[in-house]
Amino acid sequence: MSLLSLEKVVKTFGGLTAVNRVSFSVDAGDVVGLIGPNGAGKTTVFNLITGNYTPDSGEILFEGRSVKGKKPHKIVDMGIARTFQSIRLFQNMSVVENVLAGCHCRMKSGIFASMIRTPGQRREEKKALETAKEVLEFVDLWESAGLSASSLSYGKQRLLEIARALASRPRLIILDEPAGGMNDQETAELLHLIREISRKGITVLLIEHDMGLVMRACEKLVVIEYGTKIAEGRPEEVKNNPRVIEAYLGSDEEEDAC
């Protein structure tokens, strides 16, 4: 059984059908890429999986359980963590506190325990801090842990978002254009990082415009255009699919015209 499966998912905004009967599945352990031209509906698909939007119809199952109608924090708790296309960090807070946000849903201490600082509460805080250190070392940001998130470069802010997502101990991580704003060097490091995440046993679902990265990182690609899935398969198959070539050439021409 696949880890995540979408079945004929539909999402409309007013008259616009942003996602039109899209079905695909993600197997545990894979790195899957979701690609398509600008405005194809990729981010909308992510927002449907993470509970930011609710599908008009169709079904989304994670580990056999429906995520439909669940709030985003609940879905994080189920084991799906995400990053945002437009970086959304807690800019005025420190790097380590940004990561502790991800730890939050794995902690339990309540108001009373915090007030009298029970041994359990202190142990839990210490453990969260260890998790934060582990994931920050993983993305090579531990040295900056005390800085405010806003002082990091764009590329490092992307890594911090990934660290925050990893801190919630997900089984599936969803990355929305993680290479956006990164230089070649940083993108190469990102490829390495995605492979490391996969090696940890975390399944990766990725939106990315950088075709070089997608082709190398992913075992499987899903292509959507105007909200509809037009191809699915191994990267080399998809790359030579005439329908995909047409979609991409078409969008390239539009971009040139702008």
């Binding site: 993470t50 924090h73 959304r88 960090l89 005025n92 915090s114």
Partner: peptide, 25 residues
């Protein structure tokens, strides 16, 4: 100084990001 205080600060900074990080905003 507890996770409660942190959670509130995340909400103040960016509610969508807080919810998306697993906080019941």
């Amino acid at each position: 100084q507890s996770r409660f205080g942190r959670a509130l600060n995340y909400i103040k900074e960016d509610e969508t990001a807080a919810e998306g990080s697993g906080i019941n905003t």
